[in-house]
């Protein structure tokens, strides 16, 4: 994964960037499966590797751009910022429980109830589904709204009949 990500950072061909991103998502999906999050893996594969890639390609097709125009030197300001942020994160991990530790607090408070009672309460064996749709159903409503927002936004930005607007002289509100 890290290799893919690094490749994405270095590659200049935008087509490759999109593809790399797709591969990255697929790897991530595989990782999710390994970590027993099959629903997420499914979604990531469909969305990250599928939709995102298709959208990226469509964008490239529409804008007819292939490669970044300039080779950039490594920018030190951002690099420094990134290193600081990363260091902060690493610092934060130091007190984390070990990976997969069953005694971690995350497994001790809220989650067990889902595992214990959800089937009884909702009749749905897939706990992810029951939590998603019922216990935290409101989040999912929000999520659906986000999708609606994005679709409307894209419609608004790129929908048809934009021609009148584009051909009209863009008035420079600030000038």
């Amino acid at each position: 994964m890290a290799v893919t990500a690094l490749a994405l950072a270095r590659v200049r061909n935008l087509f490759a960037v999109v593809m790399m991103s797709g591969i990255f998502s697929l790897t991530a999906a595989a990782l999710y499966v390994v970590q027993d999050a099959v629903d997420v893996a499914f979604t990531e594969a469909a969305v990250g590797a599928g939709i995102a890639t298709v959208l990226g390609l469509a964008t490239l097709a529409v804008t007819r751009s292939e490669a970044e125009k300039k080779v950039r030197a490594v920018a030190f300001g951002p690099l420094l910022l990134v290193i600081v942020t990363g260091a902060a994160l690493i610092y934060g991990t130091l007190d984390m429980p070990d990976y997969g530790d069953p005694a971690a607090p995350i497994h001790g408070h809220v989650a067990p109830r889902y595992l214990a009672d959800s089937e009884k309460e909702t009749g749905v064996p897939n706990v992810v589904t029951s939590v998603l749709a019922s216990y935290r159903g409101y989040d999912t409503l929000g999520e659906t709204t986000v999708i609606l927002t994005a679709a409307c936004g894209v419609l608004m930005l790129l929908g048809r009949n934009r021609r009148q607007k584009r051909n009209a002289p863009t008035r420079d509100s600030a000038a």
Binding site: A37, D39, Y114, V128, V131, L132, D139, E143
Partner: peptide, 11 residues
């Protein structure tokens, strides 16, 4: 495995 992170991440 804990289901809650999966749910959050789906969102």
């Amino acid at each position: 495995t804990n289901p809650l992170p999966s749910v959050l991440i789906l969102t």
